Computed example of a mutant assay.
Amino acid sequence: MYIFGTDKEKHIIKLFRRGDASAMDCLYSEYADYLTAVCARYIPDDDELKDVLQESFIKIFSKIEKFNYRGNGSLRAWITRIVINESLLCIRKKKNSPFINIEKEPPDIQDEDPEIGNLNEEVLTNMIRLLPDGYRTVFNLFVIEGKSHKEIAKILNIKADSSASQFYKAKKQLAKMIKDYRLKQE
């Protein structure tokens, strides 16, 4: 994260402030892989993911002059928030609600927490991408982003109980996927 003894984020911001043509390339090369991974947790379709990332980078580049650098990590946090917000916007734009009716029972799945143990990060990410939209969205916001069900409810315009239900169902479906994966590996 440090280049020539300085904070890379601060260096990137300085490039933008000076109007340096390399600023966009520098930011992109530093964060593209990370932001792709963030977006992939929410958007399972690769074409849609590319669209969301493109919109995110457009927003980042067009609003970076308003960004207020607050120390190491603040740029990464800011651009991550933009990608998450663009991902959620994409999910909301879909014609059908991504949230499964909570009146229905989830598929036949274990009543246990998923045991990830030494599961490869890429395998786990791919399993999360296979969850239905509502499950995946709530799971990411709760587990990865650390949001409460009340906060998730406000973000997604649903009830907190619906968020909790979606998380419960996501966790159970993920447990089944992990169990099935391990059985195939034996």
Rank of each mutant, 00 (worst) to 15 (best):
G5Y: 10
G5K: 11
K10E: 14
H11A: 11
H11N: 09
I12T: 09
I12S: 02
I13T: 06
I13A: 04
L15V: 01
F16T: 11
F16S: 10
R17P: 04
R17G: 06
R18C: 03
D20G: 06
A23E: 08
M24N: 08
D25A: 05
L27I: 02
Y28I: 02
S29R: 15
E30Q: 14
Y31G: 01
L35C: 07
A40F: 04
R41M: 14
I43D: 00
I43W: 00
L49R: 15
L49A: 10
K50Y: 05
D51N: 14
Q54N: 09
K59D: 15
F61S: 04
S62P: 06
I64N: 02
N72F: 09
N72Y: 13
S74W: 02
S74Y: 04
R76V: 03
R76K: 13
R76E: 08
W78L: 06
I79L: 08
I79V: 14
I79A: 03
R81M: 06
V83F: 05
I84Y: 05
N85M: 08
S87K: 03
S87Q: 01
S87N: 02
R92S: 13
R92V: 06
K94Q: 12
F99Q: 02
E103N: 08
E105L: 03
P106L: 05
P106T: 09
I109T: 14
D111S: 07
D113L: 13
D113N: 06
I116F: 15
G117A: 15
N120M: 10
N120Q: 14
N120P: 10
V123S: 12
T125F: 01
N126F: 03
M127H: 06
I128T: 11
I128G: 08
R129L: 00
L130A: 13
D133R: 13
D133W: 08
G134N: 06
V138L: 12
F139K: 10
N140M: 07
L141G: 06
K147Y: 13
H149F: 10
K150M: 04
I152C: 05
I152S: 07
I152T: 07
I155C: 02
N157E: 10
K159R: 00
K159V: 00
A164H: 01
F167H: 03
Y168S: 05
L174F: 11
K176P: 03
K176R: 13
K179H: 08
D180A: 01
Y181H: 10
L183P: 00
E186F: 07
